[in-house]
């Protein structure tokens, strides 16, 4: 199949993907974590991995979720089991690029930044990186089959509690 798009298809899809990201980060920024899994397929793969591991082909991730169940467990941790201080997280997604189409959907990449605000502190850059996303369409709606956030930051500023 043709892996690229016509100009008009690409522009339309790009707008749709940008809107998807805007909704995705609004869901997280507003801490509506219970809705977060709805952006994914049931058999999704989601991970947050340091760039050092990613570029060397080392499989260990900082956060590894295989399927919706893993996402739900993370929500349970955020809501019930993890002990952590209050924080705001604000995410920015930019430089969205459509990479190529495949039989299952299409791949996209984007830069992301996440800013964290802790009590009594100035807001700090928490994580900066690139997302490698694979989208598919279910009943007309875009869903993430795969989302891999590769972060540049060599040191995680203490704890990664909320998703990116």
């Amino acid at each position: 199949m043709d892996k690229s798009w016509s100009v008009s298809d690409r522009l339309t899809l790009r707008l749709e993907v940008e809107e998807f990201y805007a909704n995705y980060i609004a869901c997280l920024d507003e801490e509506r974590f219970e809705q977060w899994p709805e952006f994914f397929t049931d058999d999704c793969f989601y991970q947050i991995i340091p760039r050092l591991n990613f570029e060397r082909g080392l499989p260990m991730a900082t956060w590894r979720s295989e399927g919706r169940g893993y996402l739900l467990d993370r929500i349970t941790a955020i809501r019930k089991t993890s002990v952590y201080g209050p924080r705001y997280m604000r995410r920015i997604v930019s430089a969205v690029r459509l990479i190529e189409q495949s039989a299952e959907g299409f791949d996209a990449r984007a830069n992301y930044a996440a800013f964290e605000t802790l009590p009594d502190e100035f807001t700090r850059v928490f994580s900066v990186g690139q997302s490698h996303d694979a989208f598919t369409r279910i009943d007309g709606a875009l869903k993430l089959r795969r989302r891999v956030c590769v972060f540049d930051s060599e040191l995680v500023p203490n704890s990664l509690v909320y998703p990116l």
Partner: peptide, 28 residues
């Protein structure tokens, strides 16, 4: 076994189901 180790590692590290508690409490 590789996969088992990768999956269980979700408990550990800066995003660990267990380790978050420690790094946060040590900060406090």
């Amino acid at each position: 076994m590789d996969l088992r180790r990768l999956r269980q590692a979700n408990l550990m590290g800066p995003a660990g189901f267990v380790s978050i508690d420690d790094s946060e409490v040590l900060g406090f």
